[in-house]
Design a protein around this nucleic acid. Structure first.
Lengths: 202, 202
DNA sequence: GATGAACAAGACAGATCTGTCCAATCGGGG
DNA sequence: CCCCGATTGGACAGATCTGTCTTGTTCATC
Protein backbone atom coordinates (compact mmCIF):
# COMPACT_ATOMS: atom_id res chain seq x y z
CA UNK A 1 0.00 0.00 0.00
CA UNK A 2 1.42 3.35 -1.03
CA UNK A 3 -0.22 6.13 0.88
CA UNK A 4 1.12 9.18 -0.93
CA UNK A 5 1.93 8.38 -4.52
CA UNK A 6 1.96 12.06 -5.54
CA UNK A 7 5.74 12.20 -5.64
CA UNK A 8 8.14 9.33 -6.30
CA UNK A 9 9.56 8.20 -3.00
CA UNK A 10 13.01 7.10 -4.10
CA UNK A 11 15.00 9.92 -2.59
CA UNK A 12 18.21 9.55 -0.73
CA UNK A 13 17.66 10.02 2.99
CA UNK A 14 20.02 12.94 3.14
CA UNK A 15 18.13 14.78 0.42
CA UNK A 16 14.54 13.95 1.13
CA UNK A 17 13.29 17.46 0.71
CA UNK A 18 12.34 19.49 -2.31
CA UNK A 19 15.63 21.29 -1.88
CA UNK A 20 18.10 20.20 -4.50
CA UNK A 21 15.57 18.27 -6.52
CA UNK A 22 15.74 18.63 -10.31
CA UNK A 23 13.80 21.78 -11.07
CA UNK A 24 13.44 22.58 -14.72
CA UNK A 25 10.51 24.96 -14.89
CA UNK A 26 10.86 28.46 -13.43
CA UNK A 27 8.01 27.66 -11.07
CA UNK A 28 9.89 24.68 -9.68
CA UNK A 29 13.08 26.66 -9.31
CA UNK A 30 11.22 29.39 -7.44
CA UNK A 31 9.60 26.88 -5.12
CA UNK A 32 12.90 25.15 -4.47
CA UNK A 33 14.77 28.36 -3.79
CA UNK A 34 11.98 29.66 -1.59
CA UNK A 35 11.89 26.42 0.38
CA UNK A 36 15.62 26.49 0.99
CA UNK A 37 15.71 30.13 1.99
CA UNK A 38 12.57 30.06 4.11
CA UNK A 39 13.78 27.01 6.01
CA UNK A 40 17.29 28.31 6.48
CA UNK A 41 16.65 31.96 7.32
CA UNK A 42 13.01 32.06 8.32
CA UNK A 43 9.91 33.11 6.44
CA UNK A 44 9.72 36.76 7.42
CA UNK A 45 13.47 37.26 7.06
CA UNK A 46 13.54 36.10 3.43
CA UNK A 47 12.67 38.63 0.74
CA UNK A 48 11.17 37.90 -2.64
CA UNK A 49 14.09 39.55 -4.43
CA UNK A 50 16.44 37.11 -2.75
CA UNK A 51 14.20 34.20 -3.73
CA UNK A 52 13.99 35.27 -7.37
CA UNK A 53 17.72 35.86 -7.58
CA UNK A 54 18.48 32.54 -5.93
CA UNK A 55 16.09 30.80 -8.32
CA UNK A 56 17.67 32.45 -11.36
CA UNK A 57 14.38 33.98 -12.42
CA UNK A 58 12.96 37.46 -12.65
CA UNK A 59 10.80 38.78 -9.88
CA UNK A 60 8.02 39.33 -12.42
CA UNK A 61 8.04 35.59 -13.08
CA UNK A 62 7.65 34.93 -9.39
CA UNK A 63 4.62 37.20 -9.24
CA UNK A 64 3.27 35.65 -12.43
CA UNK A 65 3.09 32.30 -10.64
CA UNK A 66 2.25 33.38 -7.10
CA UNK A 67 0.01 36.28 -6.40
CA UNK A 68 1.77 37.28 -3.17
CA UNK A 69 4.53 36.23 -0.81
CA UNK A 70 1.95 34.66 1.50
CA UNK A 71 0.66 32.69 -1.43
CA UNK A 72 4.19 31.51 -2.16
CA UNK A 73 4.63 30.48 1.47
CA UNK A 74 1.47 28.41 1.27
CA UNK A 75 2.66 26.74 -1.92
CA UNK A 76 6.06 26.03 -0.39
CA UNK A 77 4.49 24.45 2.68
CA UNK A 78 2.14 22.37 0.58
CA UNK A 79 4.88 21.10 -1.71
CA UNK A 80 7.37 20.52 1.06
CA UNK A 81 4.72 18.74 3.10
CA UNK A 82 3.89 16.52 0.16
CA UNK A 83 7.54 15.74 -0.48
CA UNK A 84 8.15 14.96 3.16
CA UNK A 85 5.15 12.67 3.43
CA UNK A 86 6.07 10.94 0.22
CA UNK A 87 9.56 10.25 1.49
CA UNK A 88 8.39 9.36 4.97
CA UNK A 89 5.65 6.95 3.94
CA UNK A 90 7.92 5.53 1.29
CA UNK A 91 10.35 4.58 4.02
CA UNK A 92 7.51 3.38 6.20
CA UNK A 93 6.10 1.14 3.51
CA UNK A 94 9.46 -0.57 3.20
CA UNK A 95 9.25 -1.86 6.76
CA UNK A 96 7.50 -5.11 7.52
CA UNK A 97 6.35 -6.56 10.81
CA UNK A 98 3.65 -6.09 13.35
CA UNK A 99 1.92 -2.74 13.75
CA UNK A 100 3.95 -2.21 16.90
CA UNK A 101 7.16 -2.72 14.97
CA UNK A 102 5.99 -0.39 12.26
CA UNK A 103 5.21 2.30 14.79
CA UNK A 104 8.64 1.83 16.32
CA UNK A 105 10.20 2.25 12.90
CA UNK A 106 8.63 5.70 12.68
CA UNK A 107 11.37 6.90 14.98
CA UNK A 108 14.08 5.23 12.93
CA UNK A 109 12.89 7.20 9.94
CA UNK A 110 12.74 10.36 12.01
CA UNK A 111 16.35 9.78 12.98
CA UNK A 112 17.27 9.58 9.30
CA UNK A 113 15.53 12.91 8.84
CA UNK A 114 17.24 14.50 11.84
CA UNK A 115 20.63 13.26 10.65
CA UNK A 116 20.40 15.24 7.44
CA UNK A 117 23.01 17.98 7.84
CA UNK A 118 20.43 20.33 6.36
CA UNK A 119 17.82 19.40 8.97
CA UNK A 120 16.05 22.56 10.06
CA UNK A 121 13.09 21.19 11.98
CA UNK A 122 9.55 20.80 10.71
CA UNK A 123 8.66 23.69 8.40
CA UNK A 124 5.09 23.61 9.65
CA UNK A 125 6.08 23.89 13.29
CA UNK A 126 8.51 26.65 12.38
CA UNK A 127 5.84 28.51 10.45
CA UNK A 128 3.46 28.30 13.40
CA UNK A 129 6.19 29.48 15.75
CA UNK A 130 6.91 32.47 13.56
CA UNK A 131 3.36 33.54 12.74
CA UNK A 132 2.18 33.11 16.26
CA UNK A 133 -1.34 34.44 16.26
CA UNK A 134 -4.68 33.89 14.64
CA UNK A 135 -3.50 32.68 11.26
CA UNK A 136 -6.22 30.13 10.68
CA UNK A 137 -5.15 29.31 7.14
CA UNK A 138 -1.75 28.27 8.39
CA UNK A 139 -3.21 26.26 11.26
CA UNK A 140 -5.44 24.45 8.80
CA UNK A 141 -2.47 23.64 6.57
CA UNK A 142 -0.56 22.26 9.53
CA UNK A 143 -3.54 20.21 10.67
CA UNK A 144 -3.92 18.80 7.18
CA UNK A 145 -0.25 17.86 7.02
CA UNK A 146 -0.25 16.21 10.43
CA UNK A 147 -3.49 14.35 9.73
CA UNK A 148 -1.84 12.01 7.24
CA UNK A 149 0.45 10.50 9.84
CA UNK A 150 -2.27 10.61 12.45
CA UNK A 151 -4.61 8.58 10.24
CA UNK A 152 -1.89 6.02 9.68
CA UNK A 153 -1.17 5.83 13.40
CA UNK A 154 -4.87 5.48 14.10
CA UNK A 155 -5.09 2.52 11.73
CA UNK A 156 -2.11 0.84 13.37
CA UNK A 157 -3.62 1.36 16.80
CA UNK A 158 -6.88 -0.21 15.65
CA UNK A 159 -5.00 -3.17 14.21
CA UNK A 160 -3.25 -3.59 17.53
CA UNK A 161 -6.60 -3.81 19.25
CA UNK A 162 -6.36 -0.56 21.17
CA UNK A 163 -9.67 0.35 22.73
CA UNK A 164 -8.87 4.05 22.35
CA UNK A 165 -6.78 4.56 19.21
CA UNK A 166 -7.07 8.31 19.55
CA UNK A 167 -5.14 8.15 22.80
CA UNK A 168 -2.20 6.50 21.08
CA UNK A 169 -2.31 9.08 18.31
CA UNK A 170 -2.11 11.88 20.86
CA UNK A 171 0.73 10.19 22.69
CA UNK A 172 2.62 9.74 19.45
CA UNK A 173 2.03 13.39 18.63
CA UNK A 174 3.81 14.38 21.82
CA UNK A 175 6.69 11.99 21.18
CA UNK A 176 7.14 12.92 17.53
CA UNK A 177 6.88 16.67 18.02
CA UNK A 178 9.11 16.41 21.06
CA UNK A 179 11.75 14.48 19.15
CA UNK A 180 11.63 16.96 16.28
CA UNK A 181 12.03 20.02 18.48
CA UNK A 182 14.60 18.46 20.80
CA UNK A 183 16.68 17.39 17.82
CA UNK A 184 16.31 20.80 16.22
CA UNK A 185 17.25 22.75 19.32
CA UNK A 186 20.16 20.57 20.37
CA UNK A 187 21.29 19.43 16.92
CA UNK A 188 21.27 15.90 18.27
CA UNK A 189 19.54 13.32 16.10
CA UNK A 190 19.62 10.71 18.83
CA UNK A 191 16.52 12.20 20.42
CA UNK A 192 14.67 10.07 17.91
CA UNK A 193 15.97 7.01 19.74
CA UNK A 194 14.96 8.49 23.08
CA UNK A 195 11.43 8.91 21.78
CA UNK A 196 11.51 5.42 20.35
CA UNK A 197 12.36 3.92 23.74
CA UNK A 198 9.54 5.82 25.36
CA UNK A 199 7.12 4.66 22.67
CA UNK A 200 8.14 1.06 23.24
CA UNK A 201 6.54 1.23 26.68
CA UNK A 202 3.12 2.25 25.40
CA UNK B 1 14.49 25.67 48.65
CA UNK B 2 13.86 28.40 46.16
CA UNK B 3 15.79 27.79 43.01
CA UNK B 4 15.30 31.09 41.22
CA UNK B 5 14.80 33.93 43.65
CA UNK B 6 15.58 36.60 41.07
CA UNK B 7 11.96 37.52 40.60
CA UNK B 8 9.12 37.09 43.10
CA UNK B 9 7.11 34.03 42.16
CA UNK B 10 3.68 35.19 43.28
CA UNK B 11 2.13 35.63 39.88
CA UNK B 12 -1.30 34.47 38.88
CA UNK B 13 -1.08 31.41 36.65
CA UNK B 14 -2.84 33.15 33.82
CA UNK B 15 -0.33 36.01 33.84
CA UNK B 16 2.91 34.29 34.63
CA UNK B 17 4.92 36.16 32.06
CA UNK B 18 6.57 39.55 32.08
CA UNK B 19 3.67 40.75 29.97
CA UNK B 20 1.31 42.87 31.98
CA UNK B 21 3.62 43.13 34.98
CA UNK B 22 3.94 46.53 36.65
CA UNK B 23 6.54 48.35 34.60
CA UNK B 24 7.47 51.75 35.88
CA UNK B 25 10.78 52.51 34.30
CA UNK B 26 11.01 53.11 30.54
CA UNK B 27 13.37 50.18 30.29
CA UNK B 28 10.79 47.87 31.84
CA UNK B 29 8.04 49.18 29.61
CA UNK B 30 10.20 48.61 26.55
CA UNK B 31 11.02 45.08 27.62
CA UNK B 32 7.39 44.31 28.36
CA UNK B 33 6.13 45.72 25.09
CA UNK B 34 8.87 43.96 23.15
CA UNK B 35 8.10 40.68 24.85
CA UNK B 36 4.42 40.93 24.06
CA UNK B 37 4.93 41.92 20.45
CA UNK B 38 7.75 39.48 19.75
CA UNK B 39 5.76 36.60 21.16
CA UNK B 40 2.55 37.54 19.44
CA UNK B 41 3.81 38.54 16.01
CA UNK B 42 7.25 37.02 15.80
CA UNK B 43 10.69 38.53 16.26
CA UNK B 44 11.48 39.49 12.68
CA UNK B 45 7.98 40.79 12.03
CA UNK B 46 8.07 43.27 14.91
CA UNK B 47 9.73 46.64 14.31
CA UNK B 48 11.41 48.83 16.87
CA UNK B 49 9.08 51.75 16.10
CA UNK B 50 6.13 49.56 17.00
CA UNK B 51 7.83 48.49 20.21
CA UNK B 52 8.66 52.04 21.25
CA UNK B 53 5.16 53.25 20.46
CA UNK B 54 3.57 50.34 22.29
CA UNK B 55 5.82 51.01 25.29
CA UNK B 56 4.92 54.69 25.32
CA UNK B 57 8.55 55.70 24.97
CA UNK B 58 10.66 57.38 22.35
CA UNK B 59 12.74 55.32 20.00
CA UNK B 60 15.82 57.18 21.20
CA UNK B 61 15.13 55.88 24.68
CA UNK B 62 14.99 52.36 23.33
CA UNK B 63 18.36 52.76 21.67
CA UNK B 64 19.73 54.40 24.81
CA UNK B 65 19.02 51.19 26.71
CA UNK B 66 19.68 48.60 24.03
CA UNK B 67 22.35 49.02 21.46
CA UNK B 68 20.49 47.13 18.74
CA UNK B 69 17.36 45.15 18.05
CA UNK B 70 19.29 41.92 18.43
CA UNK B 71 20.49 43.14 21.79
CA UNK B 72 16.89 43.86 22.77
CA UNK B 73 15.86 40.37 21.67
CA UNK B 74 18.55 38.87 23.86
CA UNK B 75 17.42 40.96 26.82
CA UNK B 76 13.80 39.97 26.24
CA UNK B 77 14.67 36.29 26.12
CA UNK B 78 16.77 36.56 29.24
CA UNK B 79 14.12 38.41 31.22
CA UNK B 80 11.27 36.25 29.97
CA UNK B 81 13.25 33.12 30.69
CA UNK B 82 13.97 34.33 34.20
CA UNK B 83 10.32 35.21 34.79
CA UNK B 84 9.15 31.87 33.47
CA UNK B 85 11.61 29.91 35.58
CA UNK B 86 10.73 31.95 38.63
CA UNK B 87 7.04 31.19 38.16
CA UNK B 88 7.62 27.59 37.22
CA UNK B 89 9.95 26.71 40.08
CA UNK B 90 7.75 28.70 42.43
CA UNK B 91 4.88 26.40 41.51
CA UNK B 92 7.16 23.39 41.68
CA UNK B 93 8.41 24.26 45.17
CA UNK B 94 4.83 24.32 46.39
CA UNK B 95 4.37 20.64 45.61
CA UNK B 96 5.37 18.04 48.13
CA UNK B 97 5.83 14.31 47.77
CA UNK B 98 8.27 11.86 46.32
CA UNK B 99 10.57 12.87 43.50
CA UNK B 100 8.36 10.87 41.17
CA UNK B 101 5.33 12.87 42.25
CA UNK B 102 7.25 16.09 41.85
CA UNK B 103 8.23 15.12 38.34
CA UNK B 104 4.64 14.29 37.55
CA UNK B 105 3.57 17.69 38.82
CA UNK B 106 5.81 19.30 36.19
CA UNK B 107 3.12 18.49 33.68
CA UNK B 108 0.37 19.93 35.87
CA UNK B 109 2.26 23.21 35.92
CA UNK B 110 2.80 23.00 32.17
CA UNK B 111 -0.94 22.61 31.74
CA UNK B 112 -1.45 25.79 33.74
CA UNK B 113 0.94 27.50 31.37
CA UNK B 114 -0.75 26.10 28.26
CA UNK B 115 -4.15 27.16 29.57
CA UNK B 116 -3.19 30.81 29.59
CA UNK B 117 -5.25 32.36 26.78
CA UNK B 118 -2.11 34.26 25.85
CA UNK B 119 -0.03 31.09 25.58
CA UNK B 120 2.19 31.40 22.55
CA UNK B 121 4.59 28.52 23.00
CA UNK B 122 8.10 28.69 24.38
CA UNK B 123 9.82 31.91 23.27
CA UNK B 124 13.14 30.11 23.08
CA UNK B 125 11.81 27.38 20.82
CA UNK B 126 10.10 30.00 18.72
CA UNK B 127 13.28 32.03 18.44
CA UNK B 128 15.22 28.96 17.34
CA UNK B 129 12.54 28.12 14.81
CA UNK B 130 12.68 31.60 13.36
CA UNK B 131 16.43 32.12 13.28
CA UNK B 132 17.14 28.70 11.94
CA UNK B 133 20.81 28.68 11.19
CA UNK B 134 24.14 29.10 12.88
CA UNK B 135 23.11 31.58 15.54
CA UNK B 136 25.32 30.27 18.30
CA UNK B 137 24.52 33.06 20.74
CA UNK B 138 20.85 32.15 20.57
CA UNK B 139 21.56 28.44 20.91
CA UNK B 140 23.66 29.16 24.00
CA UNK B 141 20.85 31.23 25.52
CA UNK B 142 18.38 28.41 24.90
CA UNK B 143 20.75 25.84 26.37
CA UNK B 144 21.24 28.01 29.44
CA UNK B 145 17.48 28.39 29.92
CA UNK B 146 16.79 24.69 29.51
CA UNK B 147 19.65 23.70 31.79
CA UNK B 148 17.85 24.98 34.90
CA UNK B 149 15.04 22.49 34.53
CA UNK B 150 17.42 19.79 33.39
CA UNK B 151 19.54 20.18 36.51
CA UNK B 152 16.45 19.91 38.67
CA UNK B 153 15.31 16.82 36.81
CA UNK B 154 18.76 15.32 37.12
CA UNK B 155 18.65 15.80 40.88
CA UNK B 156 15.25 14.17 41.11
CA UNK B 157 16.44 11.23 39.05
CA UNK B 158 19.42 10.79 41.32
CA UNK B 159 17.18 10.90 44.37
CA UNK B 160 15.01 8.23 42.79
CA UNK B 161 18.04 6.01 42.43
CA UNK B 162 18.24 6.06 38.67
CA UNK B 163 21.46 4.56 37.45
CA UNK B 164 21.46 6.86 34.44
CA UNK B 165 19.88 10.18 35.42
CA UNK B 166 20.84 11.73 32.10
CA UNK B 167 18.57 9.29 30.33
CA UNK B 168 15.58 10.49 32.31
CA UNK B 169 16.50 14.09 31.58
CA UNK B 170 16.57 13.36 27.86
CA UNK B 171 13.27 11.54 28.02
CA UNK B 172 11.70 14.42 29.88
CA UNK B 173 13.08 16.82 27.31
CA UNK B 174 11.19 14.97 24.60
CA UNK B 175 7.99 14.89 26.64
CA UNK B 176 8.14 18.53 27.73
CA UNK B 177 9.08 19.93 24.32
CA UNK B 178 6.51 17.67 22.70
CA UNK B 179 3.78 18.85 25.05
CA UNK B 180 4.71 22.49 24.48
CA UNK B 181 4.68 22.23 20.70
CA UNK B 182 1.61 20.01 20.49
CA UNK B 183 -0.30 22.40 22.74
CA UNK B 184 0.91 25.39 20.75
CA UNK B 185 0.04 23.93 17.37
CA UNK B 186 -3.35 22.51 18.33
CA UNK B 187 -4.27 25.07 20.98
CA UNK B 188 -5.12 22.17 23.25
CA UNK B 189 -3.69 22.38 26.77
CA UNK B 190 -4.60 18.78 27.52
CA UNK B 191 -1.47 17.57 25.77
CA UNK B 192 0.21 18.26 29.10
CA UNK B 193 -1.87 15.44 30.57
CA UNK B 194 -0.97 13.16 27.67
CA UNK B 195 2.70 13.77 28.38
CA UNK B 196 2.09 13.24 32.10
CA UNK B 197 0.58 9.81 31.47
CA UNK B 198 3.55 8.83 29.33
CA UNK B 199 5.97 10.05 31.97
CA UNK B 200 4.21 7.98 34.61
CA UNK B 201 5.42 4.85 32.83
CA UNK B 202 9.09 5.74 33.03
C1' DG C 1 18.46 78.85 41.03
C1' DA C 2 21.89 76.18 38.31
C1' DT C 3 23.42 71.76 36.43
C1' DG C 4 23.16 67.57 34.22
C1' DA C 5 21.11 63.12 33.29
C1' DA C 6 17.14 60.97 31.33
C1' DC C 7 13.57 61.19 28.27
C1' DA C 8 10.22 62.80 24.43
C1' DA C 9 9.34 63.90 19.81
C1' DG C 10 10.46 63.54 15.49
C1' DA C 11 13.28 64.43 11.40
C1' DC C 12 16.50 62.06 8.81
C1' DA C 13 19.55 58.74 6.18
C1' DG C 14 20.11 54.62 3.93
C1' DA C 15 18.70 50.26 3.24
C1' DT C 16 15.22 46.89 2.24
C1' DC C 17 10.68 45.30 1.60
C1' DT C 18 6.41 44.00 -1.39
C1' DG C 19 4.21 44.52 -5.45
C1' DT C 20 3.47 46.72 -10.20
C1' DC C 21 4.61 47.84 -14.68
C1' DC C 22 6.85 48.10 -19.13
C1' DA C 23 9.85 47.24 -22.94
C1' DA C 24 12.70 43.71 -24.86
C1' DT C 25 13.62 38.93 -25.80
C1' DC C 26 13.13 34.14 -26.56
C1' DG C 27 10.97 30.00 -28.42
C1' DG C 28 7.64 26.95 -30.16
C1' DG C 29 3.24 26.11 -33.05
C1' DG C 30 0.33 27.45 -36.84
C1' DC D 1 7.48 33.76 -41.31
C1' DC D 2 4.54 35.25 -37.66
C1' DC D 3 2.40 35.35 -33.58
C1' DC D 4 1.77 34.67 -28.87
C1' DG D 5 2.73 33.28 -24.47
C1' DA D 6 6.39 32.98 -21.16
C1' DT D 7 10.31 35.09 -19.36
C1' DT D 8 13.78 38.65 -18.46
C1' DG D 9 15.72 42.80 -16.55
C1' DG D 10 15.02 46.61 -14.37
C1' DA D 11 12.82 50.86 -13.11
C1' DC D 12 9.55 52.41 -10.04
C1' DA D 13 6.28 53.51 -6.15
C1' DG D 14 5.20 53.41 -1.54
C1' DA D 15 5.83 51.51 2.63
C1' DT D 16 8.71 49.97 6.33
C1' DC D 17 12.92 48.85 8.49
C1' DT D 18 17.13 49.92 11.65
C1' DG D 19 19.78 53.22 13.61
C1' DT D 20 21.41 58.18 14.36
C1' DC D 21 20.88 62.72 15.51
C1' DT D 22 19.02 67.16 17.14
C1' DT D 23 16.20 69.93 19.93
C1' DG D 24 13.54 70.75 23.80
C1' DT D 25 11.58 69.35 28.20
C1' DT D 26 11.30 67.36 32.71
C1' DC D 27 13.13 66.54 37.07
C1' DA D 28 16.10 65.39 40.78
C1' DT D 29 20.19 66.97 43.03
C1' DC D 30 23.69 70.23 44.34
Amino acid sequence: MNINPDIPANRSPAAWSCIGQPADTPRDRILSAATELFCHNGFAATGVDTIAHHAGTAKSTLYAHFKSKDNLIEAVLEREGQAWRSWFFGQLNKTAGTPAQKIASVFDILELWFSDPEFYGCPFINAISESNSEDDRLRAAVASHKSHLNLWLHAQALEMGFSDPGALVRQMTVLIDGAIVAAQVSRDASFARVAKEIAARL
